[in-house]
Simulated scan of single mutants.
Amino acid sequence: MNVKVKIINKSKHELPAYGTLFSAGMDIRANLDNPVVVEPMQRILIPTGLYMALPEGFEAQIRPRSGLALKHGIGILNSPGTIDADYRGEIGIILINLSDKPFEIKDGERICQMVVKEFCRVEWEETDTLEETDRGAGGFGHTGVQ
Rank of each mutant, 00 (worst) to 15 (best):
Ile7Cys: 09
Gly138Trp: 13
Leu32Val: 09
Ala60Asp: 05
His142Ala: 05
Cys120Lys: 08
Asn97Lys: 10
Gly49Asn: 06
Gly108Ala: 06
Met26Gly: 00
Ile93His: 01
Lys117Pro: 02
Glu14Lys: 04
Glu123Tyr: 03
Gln61Glu: 10
Lys101Ile: 13
Ser66Ala: 01
Pro35Lys: 01
Leu95Tyr: 03
Asp86Pro: 10
Leu50Met: 03
Gly73Phe: 08
Ser66His: 09
Glu131Val: 12
Ala17Trp: 06
Lys106Asn: 12
Lys71Ala: 08
Glu132Leu: 05
Gly108Met: 08
Cys112Thr: 06
Asp107Thr: 04
Met41Ser: 14
Ile8Thr: 03
Gly92Pro: 02
Arg29Cys: 14
Phe22Val: 15
Lys12Trp: 02
Lys10Ile: 13
Ala24Trp: 05
Ile28Tyr: 10
Ala137Trp: 10
Gly138Arg: 13
Gln113Asp: 14
Asp100Glu: 14
Glu131Phe: 15
Cys120Leu: 12
Asp84Met: 14
Arg88Phe: 12
Tyr18Asn: 06
Ala17Thr: 15
Ser66Thr: 04
Phe103Ser: 10
Pro80Cys: 02
Glu90Pro: 07
Gly108Thr: 05
Asp27Val: 01
Gly75Leu: 08
His13Leu: 07
Ser23His: 10
Ile93Lys: 00
Val115Phe: 05
Lys10Ser: 15
Asp27Met: 11
Arg135Thr: 10
Leu32Met: 01
Glu132Tyr: 01
Gly141Val: 09
Asp128Lys: 05
Asp27Leu: 09
Glu59Asp: 05
Val3Trp: 02
Val145Ala: 07
Glu90Asp: 09
Met41Pro: 00
Arg135Asp: 10
Ile94Cys: 14
